[in-house]
Simulated scan of single mutants.
Amino acid sequence: MGRLFLNTFFCFLILHISTQAIQLNGKSFFSTTEEEYDEKLSEFIREVLENFRDQMPEGIPDIGIPPIDPLVIPNIDEDINDRLALLSLRMSNLTITGIQQFRLELLKADLEKGFANFSLSLPKLSAEGYCYMDGKVLKIFPINSDGPFSINVTEVRMNGYGDLNVSTSGETRLHMNDLKLNLTFGQLKIEFKSLLGGGRWTEMLLNILTGFGRNLFYKFHEEAMEKLNDALLKLINKELDKGTLAELLDQIPMSVPKKMKTEFFLHRIKNV
């Protein structure tokens, strides 16, 4: 009886140890594969963005993406009233160039948390167009311009955050529900070729307007970011919608077999 008890005890002990080993190995496998999968999906989205560079001048009419570089904003009408200026501003045919020169600094996708974010840097952005401006600077000095103008900014950074959705009803598919872009920049130079005045007066106005120019840039940057945001969201979803998860995985080389990758991913989704 004692021998039977000992044999049974040792069997359970060995089974327990084996189970723990399998679980530990499983955790290690899933952890490694999870990191690898997110890394490869990040590479997939990175390639989508990089390939878009050559399509920016013409856009992609089939999915409603207009030309992005140059990016044209037909009209902007603003009445500005802040501590620097009180004036009416009318811009037309505003053309922004330089977006095509972006460099992708960071791209990270995380399916478990459901997001993808990225960071771009650009050496500079330039905007040219026609501007009618009438009002006062510092609410004292009259200012008037009716003609061409330009703004150049350097040290430009653009950050994006996308909401990833995984659908498991029927076929497993990926889709980006939303995308938010934010732009920051360093130095700014502004020029109004028809600014009234001359000599030291005009130079002083330009110095004041350079300080005001950051606000002016943000007046049209919001619409530009909206257009770019819409274009990138359509582009990413165009690629994600090309197939099921298994079909997309064929385009994302990984070191584990495809069947194992799919089973691993479905395991993650069911346990989220």
Rank of each mutant, 00 (worst) to 15 (best):
I140L: 07
P148C: 13
N207I: 13
D77A: 08
F220L: 10
Q55E: 04
S31Q: 12
G198Q: 06
P142M: 13
P67N: 14
L89C: 03
N152R: 04
T97K: 13
A224P: 04
N215W: 15
F30R: 13
L122Y: 10
G26D: 11
E112S: 09
T262A: 09
D110P: 02
D54M: 05
K40T: 10
C131P: 00
Q23G: 02
M225N: 12
D163K: 10
L89Y: 14
I208S: 03
G197P: 03
K180S: 05
Q20S: 03
A109P: 00
N237L: 10
D241E: 15
R268G: 08
K234R: 12
I143R: 00
R46N: 11
S126V: 06
N93K: 13
G129S: 08
F141L: 03
I45Y: 01
E128S: 11
N215C: 07
D110A: 08
M158E: 14
Y161V: 05
I96G: 05
L87M: 13
N182C: 05
E223C: 07
T97V: 10
E43W: 02
K227I: 14
N207T: 13
A127T: 15
T97S: 12
G170Q: 07
I190P: 00
E47A: 03
F192P: 01
F220C: 03
V272E: 15
K219P: 01
D62M: 10
E191Y: 04
F29Q: 07
D79G: 01
G198Y: 05
P253Q: 14
K227L: 05
E58C: 07
C131T: 08
G213T: 05
L15A: 15
N182L: 02
F5D: 06
L15K: 03
N7S: 11
L195W: 00
S169P: 00
V153R: 00
L86C: 02
L120W: 10
V48A: 08
E39C: 13
V72N: 12
S92C: 07
L206A: 07
M158D: 00
F118L: 06
P253V: 06
K193Q: 03
S194M: 12
G170Y: 07
G147F: 02
I14Y: 09
S42V: 11
E247R: 02
F10E: 07
L164M: 09
Y37E: 06
P67W: 15
M254A: 15
A127R: 01
P57K: 13
L71M: 15
L71N: 12
D230N: 14
Q23T: 11
F102C: 00
V166G: 01
C131Y: 00
Q23R: 12
S92T: 12
G59S: 06
I269E: 11
R53D: 09
L216E: 06
G114Y: 09
T262L: 15
L164G: 00
L188N: 08
G26S: 12
T184V: 09
K180Y: 06
L174G: 00
S150N: 06
K193G: 10
K227S: 05
L49A: 12
L125F: 11
T210F: 00
F192L: 15
L249R: 09
T33H: 13
M1T: 12
G162R: 05
D134L: 13
